[in-house]
Nucleic acid binder design. Sequence first.
DNA 1: TATTACCGTTCAGGCCAGTGTCAGGTAGCA
DNA 2: TGCTACCTGACACTGGCCTGAACGGTAATA
Lengths: 221, 221
Amino acid sequence: MRVLLVEDTTGLGEAVQDQISEDGHAVDWVQSLAFAETSVKTTPYNLILLDLMLPDGHGFDFLKKLRATGDTTPVIILTARDQVSDRITGLNAGADDYLVKPFDLSELSARVAAVARRYRGNPNPLVRVGDLEVDLADRRIDRNGQPVELTAREWALFEGFLQRPGILLSRAQLEDRLYEFGAEIESNTIEVYISRMRKKLGHDAIVTVRGMGYRLEPNEH
Amino acid sequence: MRVLLVEDTTGLGEAVQDQISEDGHAVDWVQSLAFAETSVKTTPYNLILLDLMLPDGHGFDFLKKLRATGDTTPVIILTARDQVSDRITGLNAGADDYLVKPFDLSELSARVAAVARRYRGNPNPLVRVGDLEVDLADRRIDRNGQPVELTAREWALFEGFLQRPGILLSRAQLEDRLYEFGAEIESNTIEVYISRMRKKLGHDAIVTVRGMGYRLEPNEH
DNA sequence: TATTACCGTTCAGGCCAGTGTCAGGTAGCA
DNA sequence: TGCTACCTGACACTGGCCTGAACGGTAATA
């Protein structure tokens, strides 16, 4: 699934993002209502996790506006408030579920999984790149109708290329996707993964830009 | 993405510039509001990182003026102040996000990436020079619809010409873009690269100013 | 526990594009 | 005309890149 996390607390945001990612979902994390609004306009999400107290307004306002546009994306509210009134207000505003801070990450997983279950059967959004058809949420790739299996590391790199068609990623950027930020690596691991991905995705799929990095070619054939 | 960094502290400015560059974005760094104002007039940015305490005024004034002109470029405020009042004032003035010094560079990366995410699917801003169409972030050049491939060294020089339209670059300035500052070079390497670039970009693209240097011709045909 | 399969990582050998240099030719200027 | 700055084809070398192979770790299975 593709999940939008709206949460301005850095620590909590990171923890939630890590948890949801580990559960196999793609997470976009924004820290203000302004960002949330542009995100939902540009990307189709399967689930929105919404904090209520945000620097530029109250989550309910965002939620009401979202529902007013006819958007039915499931929304789970994350908030420190545990008052019944808030809970009812939230559900009236169109929330699907409610999590009171501090909450256990495993509980969050369970709620998210419940939403995912409801979604099963509905098709996920597909990204098309050349002769590849990518289901980001389910981590599936079809190449000319044939499924392609990527390992975890390969996926981590591949997702980077999908950010934008034809995006150029430097070796440092790719390394940052695999390891702790800024970790030095002195072997040719990235090259090896590129080589393996080419074997699976087609040798023309990833283009070397010598001295600068790699790019996924949107118009391979 | 193309990022404008407005920050008068040298140490912090350099660190931020390095980080954003490594993330694959093009950074213009200015140290005063006066320079910032001319920069936003001449160049289209995807993101502005704005310090508040600047030698010639307060960042809020710049931000308000910017918004008054209808400019909606995302702005992230960098400041030592962590008071709620400032935070709210900033967001009211039209800021999209807020980073309190001292901040972790990886956190900065995350915020910038969040902005970059908004541009997912959107094309990068293109710079137009004569019959060339340049995508600085992805290092692509289209010449009359045909892609042009530049090597790393050629790009380093080409970017110099793009800093300002019609800028004149001396041989020494060009050498400084390729080698450690002040490195003496006694062969005609620069001439050779100019020659190679002309072959790829069109023979009229780069004009020789005898005895002075070279300039990229904005109105070639 | 032993077996198996797979994944992540490193290494070594080979290839070739990119780089820097030179030499001979050309164009601008006094 | 001579002088100087500049242009460009050619070439050797370096180092970035590719990839088969091997090794250790981990997880699933018997």
